[in-house]
Amino acid sequence: MALGLLLLGLTLLGTLNIQAQGSVPSMMQVPPLNKFPLQPDFQEQQFQGKWFAIGLAQNIFRSKCLSQPAMHMATFVLKNDHTFNATYTRVSDKGCDHRSDPMVPSGQPGQFILGNTTRSENYTMRVLATDYTQSAILLYVFRLKDRVYFENMLYGRTLKLSPEMEMQYIEVAKSLGFSDDHIIITAPTAEGH
């Protein structure tokens, strides 16, 4: 119920007028982070664990060959200093790709920044909505040189969420200005990853 209300709130944010830029690749403008509400009373202990990427919306144009990207998962392990060690694993027909990043609290519960100072990009992760047991919607914003990229992710504790949850996510992503070319629902791999 609470997640449904948060999804409704995110849908109402669709009044934001996110305009597509004329650059190649096609990119959408990124509204200020404070336009995306954080999960009320974020519970870091409950959020930690394994999450499977179910939905993905990005502000860069996706070609048809990328319409079904490799399945991936994120594992968030909470450390004593309230930092998450975030490990991302992508599974494709070419094998597995792993990346680990320290995500440091940024002063607002549910918002984290990349703690690895050896990277040049400015990277923020926001937990927009979660029920902790089934699904979570996150926003990732990263700046690289003169471009700003953002991803709106739907995660599930299992490889498949209900069709209703997937449709709610698609509606939220569209309300934020994403077109069909920018939104995908991932399919589980044959290996079940």
Rank of each mutant, 00 (worst) to 15 (best):
T89G: 02
P69M: 07
R90I: 02
S92T: 15
D93V: 13
A74S: 14
F76G: 14
Y88Q: 05
G95H: 01
H72L: 13
M71S: 06
R99E: 12
Y88F: 07
V77E: 14
V77T: 15
C96Y: 07
M71K: 10
A74N: 11
G95Y: 01
C96A: 09
T87Q: 12
P69E: 13
K79R: 10
N80R: 04
D81E: 02
V77R: 13
F84R: 10
V77M: 12
H72K: 07
Q68H: 10
N80Y: 04
Y88M: 02
H98F: 14
K94P: 08
T87D: 00
F76W: 00
D81K: 06
P69H: 01
V77Y: 04
T75F: 04
K79P: 04
R90P: 03
V91I: 09
S67Q: 11
T75E: 06
C96R: 13
R99K: 12
N85T: 07
V77H: 09
S100N: 11
D93C: 05
T83C: 02
D93H: 10
K79T: 15
V91R: 02
L78V: 10
K94W: 09
F76H: 07
V77S: 15
A86Y: 02
V77D: 14
N85E: 09
M71D: 04
Q68S: 15
D81A: 02
H82V: 00
H98L: 13
D81M: 06
H82K: 13
N85L: 08
K79I: 10
L78D: 09
V77A: 14
A70D: 14
